[in-house]
Amino acid sequence: MISFALFNYWAVIVLMMVGFYALISRDNLVKKLIGLNIFQTSVIMMYVSFGKISGGTAPILIESGGHGGDGHGVQVAGDAAHAMRDNAEILYSNPIPHVLMLTAIVVGVATLALGLSLVVRIKEAYGTIEEDEITRMDNAA
């Protein structure tokens, strides 16, 4: 098998460049935004790759049964589970990139919507969403 140590990063960089190419080579504004979206998803993949630990599991603590939120009843069980967890050494992936990227996705869709609304306004003002035609109209005016 190919050396896996850095393959994941390289593959994500390739995806990033696919989005970047769509962003800079296409004239259609919607296509540019789709390219930007692909770029963004790839950046998120990059961050999540940094957080992955081989053999690890999702950062949801495996322990104390029951969903008793009010600590008192399950205190003893909780302590036992605590000890068990420390002994068993369950490996969890890093939760911090997940937290950051989770919010980034939602912010990404909000900015996408803002970009799309600008595209709609450009279409209404110029009658086209092709960048070269818009530039030509601007230069002619």
């Binding site: 939602v106 909000a110 919507a113 799309l116 609304s117 709609v120 279409k123 209404e124 009658g127």
Partner: peptide
């Protein structure tokens, strides 16, 4: 917030009429 924003975004886009030129 997320609920309100997503519904508002959808309404804003869907509520606009196409202007053909």
């Amino acid at each position: 917030t997320v609920f309100g924003v997503m519904v508002a975004l959808f309404y804003a886009f869907a509520g606009r009429r196409r202007i053909d030129t």
